[in-house]
Design a protein around this nucleic acid. Structure first.
Lengths: 333, 333
DNA sequence: TATTTAAATGAAAGCGCTTTCATAAAATGC
DNA sequence: GCATTTTATGAAAGCGCTTTCATTTAAATA
């Protein structure tokens, strides 16, 4: 494992010069540069990131910190993040299961703080204030699917309400009037926004909002299953269900089938997120797609900018979801 | 961001002593230790990992390096790895898409080599010799789903052949005699072993092996779909299909449905892996479960041991897969 | 040609730690 | 009670880099 000293010896220059050609931080005579490059190649030299980090205080590492998120959602995210970061010669470290604020804090203190130039945080089950206090303990952060007014340039989100509206509009266009909604866990911005979109669409089409058609899920398959059962048990018939995510849609689909309801024959179903397996369900699931790839790229881009000390980034506009029409919606009459 | 100097000043001891209480590396008088801890607490001190790493040459970081793997498979793996590593105060960095040997090599050189105490490598699309040459460029490695005779204590695998046999036995027990097989990509140990198990089961029950009932897939959904189509197009009827992974099973299921075959009414189907969504398909997929969790834990454990310079680890026995019976297999008279 | 300016390089300090080595104080053995 | 071991601590070197500062060399200007 060659060091800068060996390179400098072989190239017959000082280590300062080697450092300069590595970092391209001051003019070096062309012939010298060549010699240094040769030496580096010969020795298979790779700078020691720890030595570099120690003096520059930069790690070239970015952390992804997640709360309790389903694999189907976070995997593509990790994938796109890592791809973007790698091309910028950054590294991605992950911390997946931080279900409570305390765990989160511990992660920040022990992992993130000292070894990352920036964090990408998916604060699903955290309150805004908890995020704020985390922010004080750690490096600059970019937030996924959460908006903090003080960080307009660092919050990456989609227009959840719009997504719901796409879903519900679609159902309405297909003739549905009795549209149920399975929401996410309460006190969560995504839940609120997606529900708001649902309500808005109904209103726009003069369809009354009925509490009995809205049941609470928790973003899990089991939660969706239960919610659908409760819906069927209540005596408010509906011809369509909008589930606030695909997990719950999958659970609901199962519940419906088990209760002898055909999808979409008896009840149409729309999800949200377009996870990997949405197209594999049967019927394949009509859903609202989050552009996870693009969001990952953007997150990486901003994280890198932050890591370079850039601040006052331009405010971000939410990403626009799209409706992916598959087989789980039928038209009525 | 307090340093060891500030702690030592506040506690009125030398930095050597502080270091000793941090690392518990030499006896320190109880009262002194207390003072140091107090000072650390007061200052919110966290040791600088880069400074530590620079002198100890240990990073407390472990890299997971993957080839082209589907999200459904790698997500739970990442999850279990990260969980194990975190409890040992290690860090996980990931590098997901290394499809060629050259990319892999680049990853090793630029990322893994200088910043990881160990690598966990999933060498799906790499040859044994390519792995060997990677081994020379990087830190100690643990291999997932691959066996290298020179690393008996560092290869974590399942008994693929046994898994296939569970699957095929099950089909045979249900009365099936014409059992097709969709294999993975060729020249891959997993493909070979799983196919071998299939053949062995047939043989044990005196069922002739028929080339026409074996079609090649590539471990993807699309590959499974195509394979199933080819199977149906060939004029060799079968009552059951064993797909070498769940992705392909999902693809096959779709193909069967589109061709008017009911699953399991007309054709039974068994997969392999038990990915997250296997139970969500309809019919839910009977499949062979890999204990990914346990494998992740084991991988983490070995990686940590390696990072501590341990060598000559005891040879590992393959994990045993289990059959998960769901709805995609019917019995024939 | 003499002088100023820019380019090219090296010496040395220092980033925050661990780890020898040396030394002082306390505990042990005879 | 003195020599010896053990315990407790500090001073200082050094890990591999970057970066300031000083110095030399080459180019540009008058």
């Amino acid at each position: 494992m060659a060091t800068i000293n060996e390179v400098s010896a072989l190239a017959k220059v000082s280590i300062s010069t080697v450092s300069r050609v590595i970092n391209n931080t001051a003019p070096v005579k062309e012939s010298t540069r060549e010699r240094v490059f040769d030496a580096m190649r010969q020795l298979g030299y790779q700078p020691n990131l720890f030595a570099q980090g120690l003096v520059t205080n930069r790690t070239r590492n970015i952390s992804l910190v997640l709360t309790d998120l389903t694999s189907a959602y976070f995997a593509p995210l990790i994938k796109s993040l890592e791809r973007s970061l790698r091309s910028a010669r950054y590294n991605l470290t992950v911390s997946i299961e931080n279900t409570t604020y305390d765990e989160m804090r511990d992660t920040f203190l022990s992992q993130v703080n000292r070894r990352s130039d920036a964090v990408i945080l998916f604060p699903h089950c955290l309150s805004d204030d908890e995020i704020r206090s985390l922010r004080e303990e750690g490096p600059p952060m970019v937030l996924l699917n959460r908006y903090l007014p003080e960080l307009p340039g660092q919050c990456i989100q989609i227009d959840n309400a719009l997504g719901s509206r796409f879903a519900v509009e679609h159902l309405i266009q297909q003739g549905h009037r009795h549209i149920a909604c399975i929401t996410g866990i309460s006190n969560n911005p995504e839940t609120t926004e997606r529900l708001a979109g649902y309500r808005k669409s109904l209103k726009q089409h003069g369809i009354p909002y009925q509490t009995k058609l809205v049941v609470e899920g928790d973003f899990t398959v089991a939660g969706g299953y239960d919610a659908a059962c409760r819906l069927l048990a209540g005596n408010k018939p509906c011809s369509a269900i909008f589930a606030s995510n695909d997990q719950m849609a999958a659970g609901a689909m199962k519940a419906l089938r088990e209760n002898g309801k055909r999808v979409p024959g008896d009840i149409s179903l729309v999800g949200f997120d377009d996870v990997e397996y949405a197209g594999l369900l049967s019927p394949s699931l009509t859903t609202v797609r989050q552009p996870v790839e693009e969001m990952g790229h953007k997150a990486a881009e901003i994280a890198i900018a932050l890591s370079q000390g850039k601040t006052d980034l331009p405010a971000l506009t939410p990403f626009t979801p799209t409706l992916v029409i598959r087989e789980s919606v039928a038209s009525v009459e």
